[in-house]
């Protein structure tokens, strides 16, 4: 019965497999209940503010600084991950070295390790008397409870993205392509810039964007190490929590909406990038 209805609606191809109406219906309902309605509530809540009020909240000094810190440091962290991620992925794919498999598996630690655990571990390490922090004190570098600490945490949680998006593309890259370029007279540098980078470029960008998107929303691993000084080392997600604890729901929501819109834009960009990457490397 569902099959005939669907056919009449003409939005799906006929199939002998049963359960389309039921499963799609349940999927959409559950999606609506858990994801769509709650997100809609967020936007609905902002309508309680007039546009001027909304603007006042978002452009208040503290909110603006928090957003700047979140987006700015996330951008820097994503750049660091782009460069080091590329070096790591190159080493993992192209070279043999002892412990390679273990290191390869460890790349996913930031995905698997709860953020609170990462937060306290990094804070302890980079404290002035910590294993790593004590090494930096003589150099006059203070990490814990400064923006630099936030950066460290964001690099940590964004680390796997570049590696894991570029790795399959670099592995897929046909050795013959490089050989072809060499027979045509290209030197190593030309092979890398003209043949390898154009092929893996889109995946590098995707990894960068994913790493950035993750860092912008990050909370758990940052708040321990950040020190959370308003205007200096207070990230936007923390400000949302603070406003919420002050029962200023509308304020919290306004900041959240800005962040959410930013992540939607990023999500769209990432989708585009991945399509481009797949077309470019001929996987579509």
């Amino acid at each position: 019965m569902t099959a005939t209805t669907a056919r009449r609606l003409g939005f799906r191809q006929p199939s002998v497999i049963p359960g389309f109406g039921l499963t799609l219906g349940l999927t959409l309902s559950w999606l609506a209940l858990i994801v769509l309605i709650p997100l809609a509530a967020l936007f609905l809540k902002t309508t309680e503010l007039s546009f001027d009020q909304f603007l006042a909240v978002v452009t208040s000094r503290r909110a603006l600084n928090a957003l700047k810190i979140s987006f700015g440091l996330s951008l820097i962290a994503a750049f660091i991950n782009l460069i080091f991620g590329f070096i790591v992925v190159w080493a993992l794919v192209r070279y043999e070295f002892p412990g390679k498999r273990v290191f390869d598996a460890l790349i996913d630690i930031p995905f698997a390790l709860p953020t609170a655990v990462a937060g306290i571990a990094l804070t302890t390490l980079f404290a002035e008397n910590g294993w790593l922090g004590s090494l930096l004190v003589p150099l006059g570098i203070k990490v814990s409870f400064t923006p630099l600490g936030i950066l460290i945490a964001l690099v940590f949680i964004g680390l796997p993205f570049v590696v894991r998006t570029v790795q399959p593309v670099l592995l897929d890259l046909d050795l013959e392509l490089e050989e072809a370029a060499e027979t045509l007279g290209a030197n190593r540098w030309q092979v890398i810039t003209k043949v390898i980078l154009p092929v893996i470029g889109p995946s590098l960008l995707t990894g960068f964007a994913l790493s950035f998107a993750r860092a912008v929303g990050e909370y758990g691993s940052v708040i321990f190490i950040a020190g959370n000084l308003p205007n200096v080392s207070e990230i936007a997600p923390l400000l949302i929590v603070i406003r919420l604890e002050e029962f200023k729901y509308a304020d919290a929501t306004a900041i959240a909406v800005v962040m959410l819109l930013a992540s939607f834009v990023l999500l769209l960009a990432i989708n585009r990038l991945q399509r481009w990457s797949e077309v470019r490397t001929g996987r579509l």
């Binding site: 769509l36 997100l39 809540k45 929303g217 909370y219 758990g220 929501t253």
Partner: peptide, 20 residues
């Protein structure tokens, strides 16, 4: 849409339920 929750800050994922 199914992937959407990956790109939302966890704080916002909590906030929406407080709002509801």
């Amino acid at each position: 849409l199914i992937d959407l929750p990956f790109s939302i800050s966890p704080v916002i994922s909590g906030l929406v339920f407080v709002l509801l």
